[in-house]
Amino acid sequence: MSIPVIDFSAFSLTEDDVSEEQMCSLSSQMKTAFTDVGFVFLKNTGITHEEVERVLDASKKFFLQPDEKKQPFSRRSFSINENHGWVSCEIERLNPNRPGDLKESYNICSVLPDIKWPSAEFQELHASSFLRCQELSLRVLTVMAHSLDLDPDVFLSAHRFVGTDRNSSVLRPLYYPPVDSEKVKKDQVRCGEHSDYGSISMLFQRNEGLQVLSRSGEYINVPVIPGAVLINIADLMQRWTSDQFISVRHRVLLPPAGDSCTRQCLAFFLQPDDEAVITCLDGSNKYPPVTGYDYLLKRLQASYDQF
């Protein structure tokens, strides 16, 4: 199995119009990818390699500081959203059956200027990146709706409040520090096996390490394609489409013993609006209705000792 690569230039952030022929081509390719694999690379999206690198550089400056400098920005310390803020190593367990993940992150759930930010540079670059990822993700939803012969508003109307306190989408720079093999706990990994929670996820990778579960039950290594974004279906979209689009488990294992490599990436997790009710689009009762927030809360509670 390999992850398909789609040229998204016809509907990139720099294009105002897309022809019906171009939309049909994009939607056909995307439908095949999300039905068969659950993941796809998009290239020529309008989000450049250079702008992603600037965001990753700014986040790395934050992550390389001593923990006491990062502590004031900890998750659960912001009134705007309990999920907003810095997550230190081993706090999150994306596979609850493993010890805490050997990674740290910064959850950006709001781009409001009046909240506390680590620096003006961090704020400017990450707020801009959040908005760019938001716009691209809504374009991807439009193509996905077209691929299912749906009015785009079926998906778009459930994502009207992204970036506000009525939606829990998050931009998440991640940093995987060097691993001390002598201190690693039994069964501990950098990022435990999991599927994502919401509608779709977007990932910009600086380094390799991600593995995706294939239909045959084997994990495959995901390459890094500079300038491309990796997009995958998340759980609520699988429920929404009654399993037509598939949400696939993925992970990041430890590097080989003695390998002191780090890993960095930038993720954007698109969530339906908190009060949006997700029901099966085919009218079936394959999955019971659930709101975007209720499903997210259940998954977060399983990933953290306390939410």
Rank of each mutant, 00 (worst) to 15 (best):
S2P: 03
V5W: 03
A10G: 09
F11I: 05
D16F: 12
V18P: 06
Q22F: 12
M23F: 05
S27P: 02
S28D: 12
S28M: 13
Q29E: 14
Q29N: 14
M30Q: 14
F34K: 06
V37L: 08
G38D: 01
K43R: 14
N44L: 02
H49L: 06
E50N: 09
E50H: 07
V55W: 05
L56N: 10
D57S: 15
A58N: 06
F63C: 03
P66M: 09
K69V: 08
K70Q: 04
Q71S: 12
P72T: 04
R75L: 13
N81V: 08
H84E: 06
G85C: 03
G85T: 00
W86S: 02
S88C: 12
I91Q: 15
R93T: 11
L94M: 13
N95S: 04
N95H: 05
P96Y: 02
N97L: 14
D101P: 02
K103T: 01
S105P: 03
N107Y: 15
C109M: 06
L112A: 15
D114Y: 12
K116N: 09
K116Y: 09
W117C: 00
P118V: 10
S119K: 08
E124I: 05
V143I: 12
A145C: 06
H146W: 13
S147C: 08
L148P: 00
D149W: 11
L150N: 03
F155H: 05
L156R: 07
H159F: 08
F161T: 08
D165N: 15
N167H: 06
V170W: 00
V170M: 11
R172Q: 12
R172Y: 03
L174T: 13
V179S: 05
D180R: 07
S181H: 15
E182W: 09
E182F: 13
K186L: 14
G192I: 07
D196M: 04
S201D: 07
S201F: 10
M202I: 07
F204C: 02
F204H: 08
N207G: 00
S214N: 15
I225W: 00
P226Y: 02
A228Q: 02
V229C: 03
L230W: 11
N232P: 11
D235G: 04
L236S: 08
M237L: 15
R239G: 02
Q244P: 00
F245A: 10
R251T: 13
L253E: 14
L253T: 13
P255K: 02
D259E: 07
Q264M: 15
L266K: 04
L266G: 01
L266Q: 01
D273A: 07
D274T: 03
A276P: 01
I278D: 01
I278L: 09
T279E: 13
T279C: 12
L281R: 07
G283F: 12
Y287L: 02
P288H: 09
V290K: 05
L296Q: 10
K298G: 04
L300C: 12
A302V: 03
Y304V: 08
Q306G: 14
F307K: 10
F307D: 11
